[in-house]
Amino acid sequence: MNRSTLLRGLGLAVLLAVAVATPFLLDPRGYAIRVVCLALLFAAMAQCWNIVAGLANQVSLGHAAFFGIGAYTSTLLLIHFGLSPWLGMLVGAVLGGIAAFLISLPTMRLKGHYFALATLAFGEVMRVIANSWSGLTGGPVGISVPFAPPSFAMMQFKETRPYYWLMLAALVVVTLVFVAIRRSKLGYRLRAIKENADAAEVIGVDTTRTKITAAVISGMLTACLGTLYAQFQFFFDPDTVFGVASISVRMAMIAIVGGIGTAAGPILGAFFVIPLEEFANDLFSSRAAGLSQLVFGVLLIGVILIEPRGFMALGSRIRRLFGKGGRP
């Protein structure tokens, strides 16, 4: 191991220690810790999205479908069978994987905007189904997670701190999965498809199978995060968990703002986008309806205009400016 990897490992360890200790600095019943929890969760979601979109450049705008499947599956199993959300999460992951497989079969041959629109439609179909199938989901009224005595086994806690660590653990796991995939055969193949699909096929990459495999992994992990969200919020409705703007686009946007295809990108993106959104809401929503979204939108457009490849590319641009030769 050379010095730079050692330093990097040390830096990551310090960062993780700080992240684990952070809740002790925040008011455990306060607002800030909830925002940080959401930022961690959305970082993990954007990381899931990054597996397919970042590596293979198949930009999905329908990931809310898997997220919502995860949220509803564990919650319904808890309501009707008293099943622990941990087990519900596994069932949700399986269903999310199946959904990803089924939607991938017809759409994976599509590229660019066509793929984005097809997945967008899929997410919307799931939202409409959840809204109209009131017998199962409770419909537009929404659904509440039944209270259980707080315990790890039921994934319910009195305070916000355990949720924070739960979200942090989820982010770490998903990020490790992303890094492992990127270094594996699957990762090389996904990136080869992004670079040149025909050339990849000709040298032996099964492009369809590769993309479907990545989509299934991504869909399963996203569904798991849906369960965490349900347990954290205690209440949700179809428009929140299956929403285009609230989930699908936000996942994509966070990864793009941070740096698509990089492991740190979704994390940077989430810790920029989510607090910014909350801040804009807090500051402007009382003055005029829609003003907060406007401010939020303008700031995002500004970031994308300055560096379309996200913060990660901005970082290496700054390093090069100071003569430290980072690669673009």
């Binding site: 080869a192 050339a199 032996g204 990459v205």
Partner: peptide
């Protein structure tokens, strides 16, 4: 010539070996 342009030379060739 259809290389994977954002790959290193080694990674380009390596991807063929994954077959």
């Amino acid at each position: 010539v259809a290389l994977f342009l954002d790959f290193s030379v080694l990674d380009n060739v390596l991807t063929g070996g994954l077959l």
